[in-house]
């Protein structure tokens, strides 16, 4: 069974081909870590998977049905997308932000129910934001705003979460907290596509990685086979060394080779 699958998907941005003939198949409970240099097309790929950026060629299927044939509300019930930029032009409280995740589940005349509010509050509690529920997002720090956006995406209760650098700007403790939450979500059967700059985020819960080389080439596969010193060194065009800590490989940049 496949949740989201791409078939010969090619993505262009302007004159550049970011990804050529991509074939991946995301199943329930899988977590895909997307890695690559700055500007290699990670965010654009996510935008294409979310149905926002029109691909140049190829198909995207959600539950074996072409993505464009889903109504936007039905798509949003199944797929959430955390974008990189999420600043609001107008003041907005943290709770209001979390409640936006309930939008696709409400009919035109519905109002957020006490269940919706309890669900949003619960997501805020998971991310340490309860005390900030009434605060205006603009008065928060970048990391706190990022966590509020993540709470909204979690409140959407979708089967598939497309997350564009959800951990950027988070401090060490909150990064670990957010990673634990994402691990719980995959254990609950949700699938994740996680864009990150840190290959070590794969630890413990990423099942697959997708490496984007920025010139159309890509490499996808299970973590054990694909996340290697050689592949990462080629990806980042800088030596990457693997170090075993408690039996787990950790990837650290090696000395620069001129």
């Amino acid at each position: 069974m496949s949740l989201l699958a791409t078939n010969q998907l090619s993505i262009r941005q302007g004159q550049r081909t970011l990804c050529h003939a991509l074939d991946i198949n995301i199943k329930p409970g899988e977590c895909w870590l997307v890695l690559g240099e700055n500007g290699c097309g990670k965010s654009t790929l996510l935008a294409a998977l979310a149905g926002w950026h029109a691909p140049q060629a190829g198909k995207i299927n959600l539950h074996d049905k072409p993505l464009p044939s889903w109504t936007s509300q039905e798509r949003a019930k199944r797929m959430a997308w955390l974008t990189q930029q999420d600043d609001s032009a107008f003041p907005l409280t943290v709770l209001e932000k979390a409640l936006t995740g309930r939008h696709p589940h409400l009919g035109r005349w519905d109002w957020e129910s006490t269940d919706d509010i309890a669900l949003a509050q619960h997501q805020l509690a998971r991310l340490d934001l309860v005390n900030l529920a009434g605060r205006d997002l603009a008065t928060l720090s970048g990391g706190e705003r990022r966590r509020a956006s993540l709470a909204a995406v979690l409140a959407q209760q979708a089967e598939l979460l497309l997350l564009d650098e959800p951990l950027s700007q988070l401090d060490l403790r909150h990064q670990q907290q957010a990673l634990a939450i994402l691990r719980d979500e995959t254990n609950a059967g949700r699938s994740l596509v996680l864009v990150s700059h840190d290959p070590n985020h794969a630890h413990g819960f990423a099942s697959h990685v997708l490496l984007l080389f920025g010139d159309g080439r890509w490499l996808a596969g299970p973590v054990q086979e694909t996340l290697t010193e050689a592949n990462l060194s080629a990806l980042y065009r800088h030596p990457v060394r693997s170090h075993l800590v408690d039996g787990q490989p950790w990837f650290l940049p090696g000395p620069h080779v001129a």
Binding site: S72, Q73, A76, M79, T83, D86, D87, A89, T100, H103
Partner: peptide, 21 residues
């Protein structure tokens, strides 16, 4: 009747798209 959609549209087009608007 579109007021809730307009709410999320004012948070940005991509966010609104992701939420099914």
């Amino acid at each position: 009747p579109c007021a809730r959609d307009l709410n999320i549209l004012s948070h940005g087009q991509q966010a609104a798209h992701a939420l099914g608007s």
